[in-house]
Design a protein around this nucleic acid. Structure first.
Lengths: 153, 153
DNA sequence: CAAAACGCTACCAACTCAGTTACATATTGC
DNA sequence: GCAATATGTAACTGAGTTGGTAGCGTTTTG
């Protein structure tokens, strides 16, 4: 469920970059380099979480269910991670006096560490992501144009 | 390599709780609920990272290589995670104009999110962990004693 | 030399997961 | 209604991962 997060970010970022256009799973799968079915598996989770909407049939596809500024990356992570934790937890039923107490404390720590990561993800919205990607593409384009101009002159 | 982190924390915490005693992999494996070989696989990594020292032969075992206050949990994590990243990265070779740029940016974000988690882990030392576990065990003991006393009276 | 303990390799069973195939369903446009 | 297009989903497969086990060698103690 970890690679799915990367696919989810691709979907959200790609949809945002098209500014409201509907895109088919085929298109998104191709640009990511995977199969439409794999991509749709992620799309189904994002849909269940209310982040995208999809329409079936001819001319169908998917688009963002909310404004890009109202979707943060933590939501995307939670949409694709089915109740699994990132860091494995200490098992129950450890023997002795120390181990069970230690295990309980460690589990709390692991939870905190994960929360730190999720909060970092929550601080980024799809809109911010889109803005930066657009800027980079624009910069690359002008740089190319400038160097082409220099080369031409 | 993720469950190994939990085992690593068990090892470090358990060794600290014994205050410098040498413990065999058998003892530590039993309290965690796994086999000595599995535990030694983690022990080998901790040893390579310089966190524990082990002695072979009869009467052998392992102990912390440094003072518990000089070992933080991030070191433990890096000792057991062999160059693997926690969050899968965006693949190379995406098609189109947007996807490669988006992928590059997303990878930076994932790195930041992981760093946030590691920094949270780095803020905790084995000594702090040990102090809290000791306190909890002590509290549980007095509570048991008090309720036993109340019951007896 | 025997016992205890680690070190390491090889192998197995279970699990996960991306990818593929196949088929059902929904929508559009003729 | 029919054909074309797209999603929805289930089943299967092959690769990779991992915890557990067994076996053998090595080191240390007594």
């Amino acid at each position: 469920m970890n690679n799915q997060f990367t696919i989810a970010l691709h979907i959200l970022g790609f949809l945002a970059s098209r500014g409201g256009d509907m895109l088919t799973s085929e298109q998104m799968a191709h640009t990511y380099g995977t199969s439409p079915v794999v991509l749709r598996r992620v799309l189904a989770k994002l849909q269940r979480a209310g982040l995208v909407e999809t329409q079936r049939g001819a001319g169908g596809g998917s688009l963002l269910a909310r404004h890009p500024s109202a979707i943060n990356l933590r939501e995307a992570y939670e949409a694709v991670s089915d109740d699994t934790v990132m860091l494995a937890r200490h098992p129950d039923g450890c023997a002795g006096v120390v181990a069970p107490v230690l295990g309980h404390y460690v589990n709390g720590l692991l939870e905190e560490a994960e929360r730190a990561m999720l909060e970092r993800l929550a601080a980024v919205t799809v809109a911010q992501m889109d803005r930066i990607v657009r800027a980079r593409i624009g910069r690359a384009r002008t740089a190319r144009g400038a160097s082409a101009g220099r080369r031409a002159s």
